[in-house]
Simulated assay, not measured.
Amino acid sequence: MEKSYRRILVIKLRFHGDMLLTTPVISTLKRHYPDAKIDVLLYQDTIPILSENPEINALYGLKNKKKKTSEKISNFIQLIKTLRSNKYDIVINMADQWMMAVLVRMLNAPVRISHDYSHRRNAFWRNSFTHHAAQKGTNVVESNLSVLAPLGLDSNVMKTTMSYNPSCWERVRSELAQSCVGEHYVVIQPTARQIFKCWDNDKFSQLIDALHARGLQVVLTSGPSREDLDCINAIAGGCQTPPVTALAGKLTFPELAALIDHADLFIGVDSAPGHIAAAVNTPLICLFGATNHVFWRPWSNNMIQFWAGDYQAMPSRDQLDRGKMYLSVIPAKDVISAAETMLSKNQRAPATGEEL
């Protein structure tokens, strides 16, 4: 296949963590086509997590389903005009939304590769692409990279990337100083988009008390929603000595990456910050409930992962109760012990993500 692509479009329409897990695809393309401009089409809401990645030329945002129909149509039409003008040599599609077949057809790229989705086998979808790649791999990173199989590349970049500007750390360090946080601290992100991915507030409080007893400071982070902030306040209120909550809901994704990058340890549930911790090589502990803990685990070798299924049988995906807190079966003492293990064996390395 052609070896001199100069303009590449990567398409992925998922949540923040999913977007971070596409970065090995982008890095692999950049390794093999160093002069190529690589653009990414993603949901507008998820642009911030890739906003400072130096391997990406441009990010194009698609309005998600929560927007008005008129806004989505206008946005879609404008995107097609803009993307057509870029004259892509190749499109790499990792989105299963049916409208992507329409969009890709209108870009007229000579090479159009898509994952081979089992629910997208009609003639219109299949004929919209020149190549279909089987999804392979036990983890989402490997699965994403499998889309590149038709290119016949001899190697892949097997690392996720989370970039941030030095100014992000300067701002975060200033905020930490105002809260009297020193050099050694642990970041805990207890919140997730859905309750079935969450752990009990009182268990987080017990964990924080144990870390404080060890002489470490704890910084709690979260999204900006009222529900997230209420969770943060409830956990802090249950601690003997409150953790630092001043940054909760106030950080951009690059700033969150800077905070996690300089931490001694990250602890969190199944959500994007855990994948950020893996990308910046911070030791981490992650808690998974009734989700595929192998496929969706953070891409890290310096991690202890808890799965609720090791304590109690988990339901199949079609039987999942999204209002149930499946992680409740994981005892606080086990996570406290894991934190002791990770802190004892890890000497903090210099921060890795701040140089662009």
Rank of each mutant, 00 (worst) to 15 (best):
K203F: 08
Q78C: 12
P315V: 08
F129C: 10
N64C: 05
V140C: 03
V294T: 15
A213C: 08
T352Y: 05
V187E: 06
N346C: 12
L256P: 05
R31L: 12
Y185C: 13
P54W: 06
S74H: 10
Y5V: 06
E340D: 14
T130V: 15
N108P: 00
T138M: 11
N53F: 03
N301T: 11
E142G: 12
Q178F: 10
I49V: 14
P350K: 15
L13M: 07
M99C: 01
T252I: 14
S155I: 09
P110Q: 05
T191A: 13
A213I: 03
V102T: 10
R173Y: 08
P110D: 05
P224V: 09
N201I: 02
M106G: 00
V40S: 05
S143E: 11
A234K: 13
M342D: 08
W199V: 06
I56L: 07
S271Q: 09
A246P: 07
C231R: 11
I113V: 11
F253W: 15
N75D: 13
R105W: 00
F253E: 05
M1L: 12
T46C: 14
I285G: 01
A101Y: 02
A192E: 07
Q44F: 02
A339S: 13
T241P: 02
W199D: 06
N86W: 00
V141A: 09
R84K: 15
E71P: 02
G289Q: 11
P54D: 03
H132K: 14
Y164T: 00
I56T: 07
S70M: 12
H115C: 11
H119F: 13
T138R: 13
I304S: 08
A332L: 10
R297M: 12
I304F: 09
F288L: 07
S179P: 13
Q312N: 10
E52A: 06
P298G: 06
R193I: 00
T138F: 10
R193V: 14
I92S: 15
N86K: 05
A257S: 15
L59Y: 06
A248V: 13
R31S: 11
A248Q: 03
A234H: 06
K203D: 04
T161K: 10
Q78P: 05
Q194S: 14
V104T: 08
A149Q: 12
I77S: 14
S179W: 01
R171D: 12
V335Y: 05
G323W: 07
H262I: 03
A351W: 04
R105S: 04
W98I: 08
S74F: 15
N108W: 05
N127R: 15
L207Y: 01
A308C: 06
L83Q: 01
Y33M: 00
A58W: 01
N281G: 12
L259V: 14
R121W: 02
Q194P: 00
M314E: 07
P54S: 08
L247W: 07
Q78D: 13
P242H: 11
M342S: 09
D318L: 06
K30Y: 03
D18F: 01
A308N: 04
C198V: 03
